[in-house]
Design a protein around this nucleic acid. Structure first.
Lengths: 194, 194
DNA sequence: CTTATCCTTTTACAAATGTTAAATAATCAA
DNA sequence: TTGATTATTTAACATTTGTAAAAGGATAAG
């Protein structure tokens, strides 16, 4: 059983999206567990079905997958970010993606089956979750636009302005694949703007 | 008031996602209206807030926006596809995107405010809508992967295999911008695989 | 401290895509 | 049908990005 004060950041994150009752809080708290993962270790491996919704309590993580043998980073999760592998969670198929801690990281995990069961008795929790998905959807649409219609250099500049301390924390090779370019290309971009 | 038989295709589409009660059907039917738009006319202009969820009953449409004065196609909607401008609908901001009929097209429109009100009394409709958003989210994640990690030629081949009659129906310049490349580049790709 | 490993940059060259302009081809309206 | 407009292809050249290999830095383990 997780101490509720451990979940303050998470509950605060949720309440900002959609306020919900003390009973709903208790229901959610009852499903939460804490998972500590050391730097560079995987929380979830490629090929596992995703049956858990994760939240980064402390630390830093990424989602990545393999393309022609190379790791491709799809998403960075900072403190107080959710990690949801939607293509597995909502389809039931095994995920092609892994979740890796980029620093020693503490995750909060919620089993999706138990959460979805709560929806039947607590519409406010279903609503909360709907809004979370809406936000994630909008973020993905915007990211798609960025990838498709901004040059790599613009994308790097944009990323730097959004997350200025990214390059201190994350190896550039991960940032390159996140931007959809090679490490060499990112190096050139960095040299050109110096 | 729209005749319910006019909505058969739409209701069938919804029931496949999540079955729901006759009362829910009536609630939804009560919100629907039909809108006919002639070929090359816009259903929604750039800059309007998106307060409506659309469905293509007959015809063909696209979502596009302007990037450096050029039209960029973000999405094609065929018969029995939804059209949702998520970045406006879920944020309340004016949309940077327009909806245009590529043929004479009949849309079904549902005002989002009224739909969201239904959620308070009919959880099954909120659940239906949640699942719709989940599906759209997954589709967008998969499309993002395709854009980021397949070469333009692969993307064109993939699009052709998914929608073989696309090139008969849609000007290649729209397809080019949908693929994230120039018209010239698409022409070269087409020439190279002939 | 030293070695081994991993990360990042640089170089040289190849391939893909963009830009501009011109030439065809197709479509639409008078 | 004709002329005007729009769509598509082609050409020539510029730019961007990829690939492969080497070199220099940084980091971690012994």
């Amino acid at each position: 059983m997780v101490n509720k004060t451990e979940l303050d950041g998470f509950l605060n994150f949720l309440q900002k999206i959609q306020s919900f009752s003390p009973e709903a809080v208790d229901s959610i708290v009852g499903l939460c567990s804490l998972i500590s993962i050391r730097k560079n270790q995987n929380l979830q491996e490629i090929g596992q079905k995703c049956r858990t919704i994760y939240f980064v309590k402390e630390g830093l993580a990424r989602i990545f997958y393999l393309k022609d043998g190379n790791e491709v980073t799809e998403y960075f999760a900072f403190e107080n970010d959710l990690i949801i592998r939607a293509e597995s969670l909502f389809t039931g198929k095994p995920s092609k993606k892994a979740i890796q801690a980029l620093e020693n990281t503490v995750f909060i995990g919620i089993p999706s089956d138990a959460l979805f069961e709560l929806f039947d008795t607590k519409p406010e929790i279903e609503r909360l979750f709907r809004k979370i998905i809406e936000q994630a959807y909008v973020a993905t649409v915007l990211r798609m636009e960025a990838i498709q219609f901004h040059a790599a250099e613009e994308r790097y500049a944009l990323l730097l302005s959004e997350k200025p301390n990214l390059i201190q924390q994350i190896p550039l090779k991960h940032i390159a694949s996140y931007l959809g370019i090679t490490q060499v290309s990112l190096s050139r971009i960095r040299a050109s703007i110096r």
